[in-house]
Nucleic acid binder design. Structure first.
Lengths: 304, 304
DNA sequence: AGCTCTTATGAATCATTGA
DNA sequence: GTCAATGATTCATAAGAGC
């Protein structure tokens, strides 16, 4: 009954969303289901598609040399459903084949650009607790690509939503502004304590970089999530506002969908595996039940 | 006279190399000079060529759309001079052009594979102190690629040489090492953190991953190094043994050459800028002088 | 010696202006 | 219309100074 605790601590019910966002999930092939989705309707697509030759049981194991031609019809549909201001974040990493890194990711980027995608940025997900192991000619692989694609150069980005706490230096530095800071500032702004430094005042937060340090999910719930909840959460905060629509065409265990719900974004999920689909649907229903219970609690509270 | 201090503290001269390794440096165009180098003679090539449109003053700033065709003749020669067991580490990062990441690095990888290179691995250099800045649609760029290419699948790799301390105790111990301790240790063993410290650390060592966390060089003397000394040092230790040959066809300020000297590897450097070349040559001569002085000191000590 | 405090700056990127 | 030059923005790190 964890939620009762939460309820007791959070008596201001007005702020709690009640069925405000919805999660539409579909079971089926991504390329086909996508055709039923309205164009220019999605604010953020974030997904971790099956990597080549992996998860054979689920996706039939796309061979590395067929990967690009398999993905291109999907990325074409994604381009269609995405809003002009939207963003597509693709989590992917090439696997090692015969001692070499495979090149399908690079080929995919080049082909997607031909489709009209802009390859705006490549974030690095540094996996702090990557899989252990030892090989004679290779170290542990501790990073994955997070490729950012856009439809236009004018996409939405809400940088303030993902600012991180600043280091301790800020406090001391602001107390005693160094000579260099003054000089630099004066030379550029030319007016004593310029704009820059006043921006620093009272600021405890800094903008992040394009390197994300996240651990992989370690809680084993029988099914492994492609990425930790923080990963889609970070991009959802960065590229969408509340009540925007987030899509994951390879939903898997539903990490993206649950991150969206938590952040009050509508979401669309597609999953080909009946098993995964059922599990996510069940979890969504549990959440709905929780919300209904909360409605009862709300009535009880207002009766007091 | 800093080195006299070091000498006084370090009377055991036997461990110090005396002109054991040589550094051959050339001033000229890399593609041309390379043709004079013997085939199958180099154990490790590590370099940071000018990035597209970068370093215009030195290299004329190769445009992004000409980059691949500019580099391919060089990489062909590098393939020739590298030993079959050798490794080529290429430090590079694509720049942003018109809001998009440029694709020349990916195209280069694809073309180099056609030349016969194996694209074995991609290390990430996480630049902890990356360039500041703020833009409406982009975060600070905090990483660069370190592409590993090989001639054959049977390349030399000495993983034990780059093992890292494990656990918090080791970290704080390392952090608290005084400067003189580090210098003394380096000068004696010539291989990063040597005997003394590894004794303190005991057996608590782990293999690293393919993500390197290094700051860019700070407090430099007028000329900027492409990468910090630790970067070539790490790869030199990983891919070569003492008295092997290390090459940097874009020597720049000579970071790779000095790292090789310090680790007792022979080195070959090529640099097109007369200015950079002179500076490196001068520094090499200073080191030779230092070694001669040391010989005198040795005589003095043994007379006691 | 071991702290804290001070100082300097780095393969950057975007919007704007001027040729 | 293109293209080159300029100004504005800004944080983590290390070396050095001071106690």
């Amino acid at each position: 009954m964890t939620h009762f605790k939460i309820l007791n601590k959070e008596p201001n019910w007005d702020n709690i969303p009640f069925m405000e966002v919805k999660s539409d999930i579909f079971c089926g092939d991504a390329a086909e289901i996508l055709q039923t989705i309205e164009g220019n309707s999605v604010d953020l697509i974030i997904t971790s598609p099956p990597y080549a030759d992996q998860r054979k049981d689920t996706y039939g194991g796309i061979p590395a040399n067929k990967y690009v031609e398999w993905f291109l019809p999907i990325s074409r549909e994604l381009l269609r459903v995405l809003k002009p201001t939207g963003t597509f974040v693709l989590n992917i990493k090439e696997r090692v084949i015969n001692g070499e890194r495979s090149t399908y990711v690079m080929e995919l980027i080049l082909e997607m650009r031909k489709q009209g995608w802009l390859w705006t940025e490549e974030f690095i997900w540094h996996k702090k607790n990557c899989y252990p192991g030892k090989w004679p000619n290779r170290f542990r692989d501790a990073w994955e690509r997070l490729l950012q694609f856009n439809k236009t150069r004018q996409f939405n980005m809400y940088q303030e939503a993902v600012m991180v706490p600043m280091g301790d230096w800020a406090k001391t530095r602001l107390k005693n502004l160094s000579k260099t800071d003054r000089i630099r500032d004066n030379s550029k702004v030319g007016s004593g304590f310029g704009k820059n430094i006043s921006n620093w005042l009272g600021r405890a937060m800094a903008y992040p970089t394009n390197v994300l340090h996240l651990a992989t999910e370690c809680g084993n719930k029988n099914h492994s999530a492609a990425f930790p909840l923080e990963l889609p959460s970070w991009f959802i905060k960065l590229f969408t506002e509340e009540y925007d629509t987030v899509m994951d065409p390879f939903m898997g265990s539903g990490t993206t969908i649950f991150a969206a719900e938590k952040l009050k974004r509508n979401s669309i999920g597609i999953e080909i595996s009946e098993d995964y689909y059922q599990r996510v649907e069940k979890e969504i229903r549990v959440k709905e039940l929780y919300l209904f219970e909360k409605e009862d609690d709300y009535a009880a509270v207002s009766n007091k």
